[in-house]
Design a binder for these strands. Structure first.
Lengths: 167, 167
DNA sequence: CTGTTTATGATATGTTATAACATTATCCTA
DNA sequence: TAGGATAATGTTATAACATATCATAAACAG
């Protein structure tokens, strides 16, 4: 399965970045339209912020981004609502561990999305969306179930260090 | 390996609870002494709070506990410092996911401690310290390493629901 | 008993997040 | 196209968790 990984692309040149961001935004708009919702200007600005960052961003970092990039003063409350909306549309993932947000890596893909798993760098917040084999997930689930618990969400997050940040 | 699980004991009667807590505190004191540090009165009060709760507690909940139980007004800063100390002595674990703290389940055990893994109930914050098989951990590590990352800590945490809280 | 280290106190502020209520924009329908 | 419904956003206040900084007190070693 080959798909366009936005997170990994974000360090390319500005021109190609914009192009790819624009493409994804277009996809996202269609996606919303198909579901009877709307990707408004502000929602699209917040999503752009996430698309153009290879790191996970906090709501407050997105406020700064919109102020600097679009001269738009978004209140915290609005950004949280917008993130909630984007999440409900599967365009954005919220990382519980980092208390930050990332754009979904598969907005512009056509295939159905699998459950995402995330590796989050403790130091620089770089995020890698990976896929863990069913057998590992299955063993994990069964261990957890033996303790009388079950996973709240199939989305797993792991506190890591990336290659660059090392130990 | 049989060891005394404090978390699971905390719903027993007050009398036996106090006894077991006192025992663990004694162990903890010896442990600190052996390492050249001291389990002061306030540190011991904070640890007691965690020992007597089967849920993970936040720093601010521990402040309340010390005020109610010991008529002790601890400033937030002190509690954070005390928790940091207790963690450095391996008496307490910090749960990144829940932003809360639990007493180590193995303070009074003699065997060496394995890396803890935690199941945290999203709803009631009940925490279960479990042990995940080496083979699962190993596969997980290898998946993560293929992505160019490595786990920040062998301590894993999973957002779950406990039996009582269900869905 | 004095100076150093260790522990704790006090105050301010940072970061993430939500509640409650007000206002504005959009869009449907009569 | 007026007017009302719904959706989107704004405003303000505050909760919960956390750290920085500087001040003070307690413990202990020489």
């Amino acid at each position: 399965m080959i798909c366009y990984n936005i997170i990994l692309m974000s360090h390319l040149s500005t021109a190609s970045q914009m192009t790819s961001t624009a493409k994804v935004i277009k996809h996202a708009k269609q996606h919303c339209a198909a579901r009877g919702s709307k990707l408004t200007e502000k929602r699209s600005q917040v999503l752009k912020g996430l698309l153009e960052s290879k790191k996970a961003l906090s709501a407050y970092e997105l406020i700064d981004y919109c102020r600097e990039k679009f001269d738009q003063q978004l209140p915290a409350m609005s950004v949280y609502r917008i993130l909630e909306f984007l999440e409900s549309e599967n365009l954005v993932h919220r990382l519980e561990l980092a208390k930050k947000y990332v754009a979904c890596s598969h907005i512009a893909c056509d295939h159905t999305h699998e459950t995402p798993q995330f590796l989050i760098c403790n130091s620089c917040n770089t995020v890698e969306e990976i896929s863990i084999s069913n057998s590992i997930i299955h063993s994990l689930r069964s261990t957890i179930s033996k303790a009388g618990f079950h996973l709240a969400s199939p989305q797993l997050e792991f506190e890591c260090y990336c290659e660059a940040c090392g130990a």
